[in-house]
C-alpha cells in the first residue's frame, strides 16, 4: 500500500500499484541527471532532485529555463535524452506511457479543456475511456471532483461558457479524477486575468493541505511561501538553488536567486 492511505482521507485513493519489494523510503519521484535537448539546443543540463510523498515543490525560473520541459519529461509528453526519472522506484521509461500519465496528472497553462464537452464530460472522459468506468460511476466520481473545486453547479456548462478561473478549476478536477499519485502544474494561473488567480490558487492550496504530492511551476510567490515544502530555482537548464521557501526568500545562497526573486516580487507588487 502506498503510504498516503494512512493519514488523511481527503486525498484521492492511490492507485493499485503495490510497492512490491521496494523500500518504503523511496521518494515518489526521483529525477537523476535529466538531460533534454531540441536539436542543437540543450534545454535541460542534468537535473537531480527527489520529491517525497505529500511534498509540494514549487519551481521558479526565467522563461526558457526549462521548467515546462522538465514537467513534460516527467509524464513523457516529451522524450528526454539522458538521465532517469523514477516514479515510486520504477523508471518512467519502463512504464506504459498511458499508465504513467494516468498516475501523473497534469494541469496546463493554456488549460486545454476539451472544447466540445461540458465541464462534467471533461472530467468523465478519462474515467470512461481510460479506466473503463460505467457512465453512472464516472459521473458520480466526476461530480465529487467538481464539488471539490467548487464547480458542481457549472457541471453542464461548456468551456466557452466558463470564466478562465472556472475553466482551470475544471482542468484540476479532470486531473484529480484519475486519482493521480503526483500532480504537475504548468503555470496554471499565468494565462488568467489577475482577479481570477485567487480561486485557482485556493483550490491548489487545499490540495496541498490535503497531502497531494505536487510539482508546480508558478511565479505566485504567495502560494510558494504558504504551500510549498520546497522551492527550486531553475536557470539555463540547471538547478541553481533549492531549499525551503523561507530560506530562499530570506537568505538565498546565490546572487542570481536573490536577483530573480527580487525582480519577481517587484513585478508582482506592481501588478
Amino acid at each position: 500500500m502506498s503510504e498516503r492511505t494512512d493519514g488523511r482521507g481527503d486525498v484521492s485513493e492511490p492507485s493499485s500499484t503495490a510497492e512490491d519489494g521496494r523500500s518504503a523510503g523511496d521518494p515518489l519521484l526521483r529525477v537523476e541527471n535529466l538531460q533534454k535537448s531540441y536539436g542543437d539546443e540543450t534545454v535541460l543540463r542534468g537535473i537531480d532532485f527527489d520529491l517525497d510523498r505529500r511534498d509540494v515543490e514549487v519551481i521558479i525560473g526565467p522563461s526558457g529555463s526549462g521548467k515546462s520541459t522538465m514537467l513534460r519529461c516527467v509524464n513523457r509528453l516529451t522524450e528526454f535524452q539522458g538521465g532517469t526519472i523514477s516514479l515510486d522506484g520504477e523508471s518512467v521509461m519502463a512504464m506504459n506511457e498511458n499508465e504513467l500519465r494516468r498516475r501523473v496528472g497534469m494541469v496546463f497553462q493554456d488549460i486545454n479543456l476539451f472544447a466540445h464537452l461540458t465541464a462534467l464530460e471533461n472530467v468523465t472522459l478519462g474515467l470512461r475511456k481510460v479506466l473503463d468506468m460505467s457512465k453512472g460511476d464516472a459521473e458520480d466520481k466526476a461530480m465529487s471532483q467538481l464539488e471539490r473545486v467548487g464547480l458542481a453547479p457549472q457541471a453542464a456548462s461548456y468551456p466557452a461558457e466558463l470564466s478562465g478561473g472556472q475553466k482551470q478549476r475544471v482542468g484540476i478536477a479532470r486531473a484529480l479524477a484519475m486519482d493521480p499519485e503526483l500532480l504537475l502544474f504548468d503555470e496554471p494561473t499565468s494565462a488568467l486575468d489577475p482577479e481570477l488567480v485567487g480561486e485557482v490558487l485556493e483550490v491548489m492550496r487545499d490540495l496541498a493541505d490535503g497531502g497531494m504530492t505536487m510539482l508546480v511551476v508558478t511565479h505566485e510567490m504567495g502560494f510558494a511561501r504558504r504551500a510549498a515544502s520546497s522551492l527550486m530555482f531553475l536557470d539555463e537548464g540547471k538547478i541553481v538553488e533549492r531549499g525551503p521557501p523561507e530560506q530562499l526568500f530570506d537568505s538565498p545562497e546565490r546572487d542570481r536567486t536573490r536577483e530573480f526573486l527580487a525582480r519577481l516580487t517587484t513585478i508582482s507588487e506592481e501588478a
Binding site: 494516468r102 496528472g105 497534469m106 486545454n112 478519462g126 486531473a175 484519475m178
Partner: peptide
C-alpha cells in the same frame, strides 16, 4: 484543433487513437 487538446487527452492517459477518436475528431467534424 490545438495541439494542447491532444496533450491534455494524453495527460489523462488516453492513447493517441483514443485522443483522436474522442477529443480531436468530434471537434474537427464540427
Amino acid at each position: 484543433v490545438s495541439g494542447g487538446q491532444m496533450e491534455a487527452a494524453r495527460s489523462v492517459g488516453m492513447s493517441k487513437l483514443q485522443a483522436i477518436r474522442h477529443v480531436i475528431m468530434p471537434q474537427a467534424l464540427r
